[in-house]
Design a protein around this nucleic acid. Sequence first.
DNA 1: CGATTATCAATGCAATTGCATTTATGTAGA
DNA 2: TCTACATAAATGCAATTGCATTGATAATCG
Lengths: 152, 152
Amino acid sequence: MTEKATPSPEAIKAWARLMRVSRQLVERAEDALKEGGLPPLAWYDVLHELAEAGEGGLRPFQLIERTLFAQYNISRLLARLEADGLVEKLPVADDGRGQTIRVTAKGRETRRRMWAVYGRSIAELVGARLSPDELNMVSALLGRLRHPPAGD
Amino acid sequence: MTEKATPSPEAIKAWARLMRVSRQLVERAEDALKEGGLPPLAWYDVLHELAEAGEGGLRPFQLIERTLFAQYNISRLLARLEADGLVEKLPVADDGRGQTIRVTAKGRETRRRMWAVYGRSIAELVGARLSPDELNMVSALLGRLRHPPAGD
DNA sequence: CGATTATCAATGCAATTGCATTTATGTAGA
DNA sequence: TCTACATAAATGCAATTGCATTGATAATCG
């Protein structure tokens, strides 16, 4: 019986910091994108995954696995991205239910412009505040909190 | 010229971990509350602040400062909390614009029941995965990422 | 004092999210 | 093959969020 109903003070503090800081950082990054007249972070996440996937594209359910977005959320996000011409939906040969999503040239360009802003935010908000060793420490410690405990 | 447009690989990795892990943990905690038929985390945050404030209560703008919620968000959240009888709004003597929000007995009870579930989530998701020293390390490192750099 | 500006909080409206369900297709077993 | 079940994705509807504005009171300044 290793169950603990009440967390230690150290755990509460770490949790509180994690919640607060992550919200602040997201907000900062979102604000920077907005100021640049660019789409929200969620769009970046999807465009990033699709860009990495290359010409083959990805199925929506693969995006769900990679991004943690809910199914209905991906469905509608892709609809918006398609409406903006940033991605295209292709039928899949061997599965009539599904489709393959591929990023367009315009989508790649948008991602590039977003990265110019987003990357700067990361550099300022995180890169400039901790040393490389400390950053690795953060990554390692947070990595132990993943669910399920492996595979990022 | 200490400006860096492109973040280091270490910074990118730490950022990615922070974004992903924090989202996962929030989702887990929210799911646990939902399973228990309890309100969302946002309610807990507000009830917690109000409980700490005691009989004197807090002004809405003070809640905004403490919780990072947007003004309209607090306004509506308080309306819902009031509709549920968890808080009460009192006029302020020396400022006709504002009100003081005070948690009710029912509000305290709801917070208590939420903590039983939320606290367990924190213990399981964070407390059980890192040692106290490691938790302190996380808190210290994340503390350096706060904005503005002081005052939590 | 009176006009101007600032602060506190609420709200109309559009966009997004969450939930449950639906539509469509694929797979497996009798 | 036909039926039952599983998976992929979309969608109707309610709830929440975001944005801009408004209403109301306070504070400041000429």
